[in-house]
């Protein structure tokens, strides 16, 4: 369970609060107007932003002071998800062994992960030799080998077209369900948000408690209505 207890992020130009928790295995979209703090919230959960007040707990354990790499999560960004000078195989391998040294079993695991995202035979390619969709798949294969119980996605695959993006999200969800991971997705695409069962609306300095997406969109509050342009 991910538990945000009285979380406050205070900046010169805005403040964001969040006070809610998520069950294990939940799939949550984080939406809201740009500049409201969606990415900041995700960065705080990942450990890239310090809290001004409050605490973040995972399975009852306080992880507020933990370094990002020691938190139980895997993260994907908008871009720059891969190291340009490493092959697809080596990029995925870093998810398994941060030192870069792999056992034979580890190598097999990386190969299997690449196969699972449909990239058999692409192991020796570098990012520049792959299409945008293939690069996304490599990043997802890395999330797969990381086997972390929390997967954070910050508008990933923003450079891809709608169909490819849907496909990538489907792939990530599939993997998340496989490992039983909780999924948090920051998005500015209403269709993408509606595909997930839960939604957190970030607006006016507050990240609201997660609500059932269908119910939220059936009767949108004013902030969501404005965001949707209704």
């Amino acid at each position: 369970m991910l538990d945000l207890r009285g979380v406050v992020l205070r900046y010169p130009d805005f403040t964001l609060t969040a006070d809610w928790h998520l069950p294990q295995g939940a799939e949550v979209a984080i939406i809201g107007p740009s500049g409201a703090g969606k990415s900041t919230l995700l960065a705080a959960i990942a450990g890239f932003e310090d809290l001004s007040a409050g605490a973040i707990l995972w399975q009852g354990r306080d992880i507020t002071r933990l370094r990002p790499g020691l938190r139980p999560m895997a993260m994907l960004f908008q871009d720059n998800n891969l190291f340009p000078h490493l092959t697809a195989f080596d990029n995925v391998a870093l998810g398994l062994a941060p030192s870069g040294r792999l056992s034979a079993a580890g190598r097999a695991q990386v190969t299997a992960a690449l196969a699972q995202v449909g990239l058999e035979g692409f192991a020796t390619r570098r990012p520049a030799q792959l299409s945008g969709g293939q690069q996304g798949r490599v990043a997802i294969a890395r999330v797969l080998v990381q086997q972390r119980p929390l997967i954070l996605l910050d508008e990933p695959f923003a450079a891809l077209g709608p169909a490819l993006r849907r496909e990538m999200l489907g792939l990530v969800r599939h993997i998340a369900q496989d490992i039983g991971a909780t999924l948090l997705l920051v998005t500015h695409d209403a269709t993408e948000a509606r595909a997930l069962p839960l939604t957190v609306l970030v607006s006016e300095g507050q990240a609201a408690a997660p609500m059932a997406t269908d119910a939220l969109f059936a009767d949108p509050p004013p902030a969501l209505r404005a965001w949707l342009g209704q």
Binding site: G47, R67, M75, F77, L94, P98
Partner: peptide
């Protein structure tokens, strides 16, 4: 951030 989240 990625290097950090991978705990390189």
């Amino acid at each position: 951030r990625m290097a950090e989240s991978l705990a390189l």
